[in-house]
Design a protein around this nucleic acid. Structure first.
Lengths: 115, 115
DNA sequence: ATAGTTGTACGATGGTTGTCGAAAGAGAGG
DNA sequence: CCTCTCTTTCGACAACCATCGTACAACTAT
């Protein structure tokens, strides 16, 4: 790593064209990550520590990485914080209507099952 | 087991109202199971051994169980065979448009990525 | 009955996953 | 400088998962 020492690793995101559906489904098939995505749909961008989930910080980092590597979210650094956003345009460009369909289904799900 | 000795276990299926979205997503987030579901969308019903997948029979049984317990497929016995079908009506009743959305997305996926 | 077909159950195995605690990096502010 | 906050990395752990081979059960056909 030549210059500008990265904070940690390099925050790699897959290209929109490389987003794999099975990775996306796997990323969304977890209650904590589903909560993250649902929270993110309402707001354009949000700081890492402000999500209504009840897990340890290191666990949260893990979930963000899964979502990021699947192409579901985008993260950028800003000073001390890391801002997270849904890759709505990329996802909808690659799989039109899919994310809305899944998130809408989850609202139905939440109404009938627990959580 | 009183009478009519079941072949093996009792082939339990969840009620349509009990189908959990996260279970469905998890069930679909596997290439073998996705192939099963895609194959099943074209035909109403199909015998177990006739799916174009390349895994051992016991592995196939495992995948059918995951799909069945998630509420994605229905299986019934007929003599020596076990017939498998998609629970299209139940899924679409619970999560309207979801399955088509995911399967359509997979076709897009398959066009651009491997498989 | 004897053999063949279809699919399951069991046990094992190697890999993945979600979880956490402890330690540390990087910035902001005193 | 020191400290506080935010977030990550690392190491560990238990649980889960996809896979297989072997053995077996149920049915069909000869």
């Amino acid at each position: 790593m030549p210059r500008s020492q990265r904070r940690r690793s390099a925050l790699t995101h897959p290209d929109a064209a490389e987003i794999d559906l099975l990775d996306v489904l796997h990323a969304l098939a977890d209650p904590t990550r589903m909560t993250i995505v649902r929270t993110l749909r309402a707001e354009p961008e949000r700081a890492c520590g402000t999500f209504p989930v009840d897990v340890a910080p290191s666990t949260l980092t893990h979930h963000f990485r899964v979502l990021r590597e699947a192409g579901v979210i985008h993260q950028r650094e800003d000073g001390n914080r890391r801002w997270t956003a849904l890759r709505l345009a990329d996802l909808d460009g690659r799989f039109p209507g899919l994310l809305d369909s899944i998130l809408d289904a989850y609202e139905t799900n939440a109404g009938a099952v627990a959580s």
